[in-house]
Amino acid sequence: MTRSTAPLTPLAMAVLELLHERDMHPYEMTQLMRERRVDLRVKLRPGSLYHTVERLEGQGIIEVVGTQRQGRRPERTVYALTEAGRDVFVEQARAMLATPAQEYPQYPVALSAANELDQDDALAQLRTRVLALRARIAADQVIIDHRLTRHLPKMYWIEFDFTHHQRQAELAWTERLVEDLESGRIPWPDADPGPARGLSVVDSDRERNGDKAS
């Protein structure tokens, strides 16, 4: 079977990462992902992992190596990485580490839409976000402290550390935004209309510099 050259999804990468440890069936993969809180960085929906496993098998990236049965439960199919699958995993890991991806998070979209709200309403939502971020950061710290007590090598949970610091940066930025809006350092559009809507950043810069085309 020919090896797939299509980029693997984050969930597919998580599956292959587990299969580097040992052969296992999809139910065990799901349990391990939840236990290790992989679901905080990968969308793990009911049935999505099984669909991913089937697709990886069809691409020749993993293969069936046996079945397991526990008690009266149905037999579970056990999968292993193929040599081609190891190559695909390594190639994609290298590419993902080296190349910043163009991602589309919701927060910048919400910030762009914020000026359509009343200022008090927008500030109320931002304050709610601040509280939610503080709660998540505190929950992150509990998990980090637990992992530190277990003396796990940091590279085993480095992705969680990255997400934790990303949240801290977002919290600090959002707190500054709230303070700037409350103090008037950033005026609300009703008070200062600013550049006309529809102008690009380059066009706005040209207007400020008096560099408009004649």
Rank of each mutant, 00 (worst) to 15 (best):
Q119H: 11
Q119W: 03
D120G: 15
D120C: 03
D120Y: 01
D121H: 14
D121L: 14
D121C: 10
D121V: 14
L123Y: 03
L123W: 02
A124N: 11
A124F: 07
A124L: 09
Q125H: 12
Q125R: 13
Q125S: 11
R127D: 13
R127E: 14
R127Q: 09
T128V: 03
T128R: 06
R129W: 06
R129T: 14
R129G: 11
V130K: 01
V130H: 02
V130E: 08
V130C: 05
L131G: 12
A132V: 06
A132P: 00
A132I: 09
A132K: 11
L133A: 05
L133S: 04
R134H: 07
R134L: 03
R136N: 08
R136C: 00
R136H: 03
I137H: 02
I137W: 03
D140F: 06
D140I: 00
D140T: 01
Q141I: 02
V142K: 04
V142S: 05
V142Q: 11
I143P: 00
I143V: 15
I143M: 13
I143F: 11
I143T: 15
I143N: 05
I144A: 11
I144C: 04
I144G: 01
I144M: 11
D145H: 01
H146N: 13
L148I: 12
L148Q: 10
T149K: 10
T149L: 09
T149R: 12
R150S: 14
R150C: 14
R150A: 13
L152P: 01
K154L: 15
K154V: 15
M155Q: 10
Y156N: 12
Y156S: 15
W157V: 04
I158C: 01
I158F: 02
I158W: 01
I158K: 02
E159K: 01
E159I: 01
E159Y: 09
E159T: 12
F160L: 15
F160Y: 11
F160K: 03
F160N: 10
D161N: 06
D161L: 15
F162R: 10
F162W: 12
T163Y: 09
T163E: 15
T163I: 06
T163M: 14
H164N: 11
H165I: 07
H165K: 13
H165Q: 13
Q166V: 10
Q166N: 15
R167K: 13
R167A: 12
R167S: 09
R167C: 07
R167E: 14
Q168N: 06
Q168K: 14
A169S: 13
A169V: 14
E170K: 05
E170P: 00
L171E: 04
L171C: 07
L171D: 06
L171Q: 06
L171M: 07
A172I: 11
A172Q: 12
A172Y: 01
A172H: 07
A172P: 02
W173F: 08
W173T: 12
T174I: 06
E175P: 01
R176G: 11
L177H: 02
L177M: 08
L177Y: 02
V178K: 01
V178M: 05
E179P: 00
E179K: 04
D180Q: 11
D180S: 04
